[in-house]
Design a protein around this nucleic acid. Structure first.
Lengths: 298, 298
DNA sequence: TAAAAATACTCCATAGGTATTTTAT
DNA sequence: ATAAAATACCTATGGAGTATTTTTA
């Protein structure tokens, strides 16, 4: 049993295909096939059932997959831990953030961080919650900024702050005249909702359901900026996080206007998240400190 | 970081010597040195300080040693688990027992076990408690029969039975006339005590201390049989476990005579022991069942 | 000087590559 | 016919060996 064999094995289990596993591992398909065959021979167990369409893990395969994952993660974490130096020499840090947070929160924090730790090589991964969780589990992403709720109990979180969701209106909208808005005043509005995997979309959608709003328009954009433009062009209104509104609202018709909701104000909870059972590098721990040291500006 | 490199590394850490590690791993010293050098280079950390006399782990080395042990054990256990078949095909089982138990308890249990599972390849390792514990931790021994107390919390135990320690006397000894003996009647006797690492020796010694017996004779033998012969030749008396006395005492002067102690009768607790955090093979679990199914005959 | 680790080189086992065949839809 | 895995065979990286030098008590 060798480490590269375990890596190939895990790749096959993940892709359910020898060929795809091979390209994932950057080796030729025959090489990978041979190593799997060798592994099976040495263990005295078939690991995969070769089916007409793809391959499937046997019982022994499932057993090995569990162990192999633990072992390979342990290897990786050990290497990370040993590479970690107090002076952050050659340190790398991969930060994840969901699209509805990234452009608003990341720049300031990254700036603070890089000023203090310029030697760290930073990469930013912007993706939806689910993919960021996968990335943290596989070790590609160290820390991610996202919003609750998170399902996976392998993920540890630190709450950073609660952020209100505001009603975003076209500048000429009738409701814009009021300072605050009651939920039943939105009864006949058409809502623009972020589509697909975006947690903000889910949240707005459930807000609509709770209040029995029926008129909606989906939006597959990954950007809040797009929604803001759609609002300006009069297609509908939406709930947007406070961080998305400009620092100094121009009020000249070039941006939507934002109003608070009275009653049970919808909020989202912003958290830093990381893998509970894997090694958190020094660079990552320092980033956590930066996040906590600089709470969300009002 | 490769598995063989971790194995070499652990060997060097254990032996504190490249040369001795090399022979332990059955490779030449230069090969092993090269692999360690490579490992150090890849991790970017010196793992050993090369001292005038031998080598010593650096901080990074200590960190790696912890991880490497866990990883290698995990690899080994995974292989064991996958090799384990319900029909016990090719199953091997290594049983340990301390010398003061082995000849009396093992034969009957091994017989029962082999009758039911003849396909298992058995090996028996007889050694003192401390060495058996090491052997279980390193994975050489699966299950050991020994007596409490055990210090190491990595070892799980199952109590099998309590066994009284009896006073063993030469056949012509005055105290032999009584059915039972009180502890203060032994005040002026000379005790023969198993030496060194034997837990029975320790136990008898502490019994002597508690009762303020002063006259002792050490015995470095590994066998109770030797002590019995010494008793017969009139050198002294001793406390011996009940299992050491013959099934049908001949009472013809060829064996010591045994008498119970009244009051707080000294006993030893016999346990089966195994490594709590490593994989216990099916063959080993079956042996445990045999041990528990056949409690010590009175 | 002796014992242990490091260097220098040589060799070969085997992981990995290319070309091809087999298998199943 | 096509797509994927297995087989055959070749290549070459790198682990391991032998011989030797360096280091330090």
């Amino acid at each position: 049993m060798e480490l590269h064999q375990l890596r190939y094995f895990v790749a096959v289990a993940q892709t359910e295909s020898f060929s795809r596993a091979a390209e994932l591992c950057h080796v030729s398909q025959p090489s990978l096939s041979q190593q799997i065959a060798k592994l099976e021979k040495q263990l005295g167990r078939k690991l995969f059932d070769r089916l007409s369409r793809g391959v499937a893990l046997t019982d022994a395969g499932h057993t090995l997959l569990e162990s192999a994952t633990v072992i390979l993660n342990n290897i990786e974490d050990t290497e990370k831990r040993l590479r970690d130096t107090n002076d952050l020499q050659d340190a790398r840090l991969s930060i994840g953030a969901i699209p509805t947070i990234a452009p608003y929160l990341l720049p300031q924090h990254l700036q603070t961080y890089l000023k203090e730790f310029p030697e760290v090589e930073l990469t930013v991964q912007e993706d939806v919650t689910q993919n960021l969780i996968s990335a943290m589990i596989s070790g590609e992403v160290d820390i991610a900024l996202m919003a609750l709720p998170l399902e996976d109990d392998r993920i540890a979180t630190k709450e950073l702050f609660n952020e209100p969701l505001l009603v975003a209106l076209p500048p000429d909208h009738a409701l814009g005249k009021r300072r605050t808005i009651k939920t039943d005043q939105l009864q006949n509005e058409r809502f623009i909702v972020l589509g697909d995997m975006h947690c903000l979309g889910e949240q707005v959608l459930s807000f609509c359901r709770v209040n029995n709003y029926s008129s909606r328009i989906g939006c597959r954009s990954a950007q809040i900026a797009t929604i803001q433009k759609l609002i300006l062009s009069g297609l509908g209104i939406s709930l947007l996080p406070q961080m998305a509104l400009p620092a100094e609202p121009p009020e000249d018709g070039s941006t939507p206007i934002y109003r608070e909701l009275t009653g049970q104000q919808p909020v989202r909870t912003i958290v830093a998240a990381w893998h509970r059972h894997r090694y958190l590098s020094l660079a990552a721990r320092r980033f956590l400190e930066v996040l906590q040291g600089t709470p969300m500006p009002e």
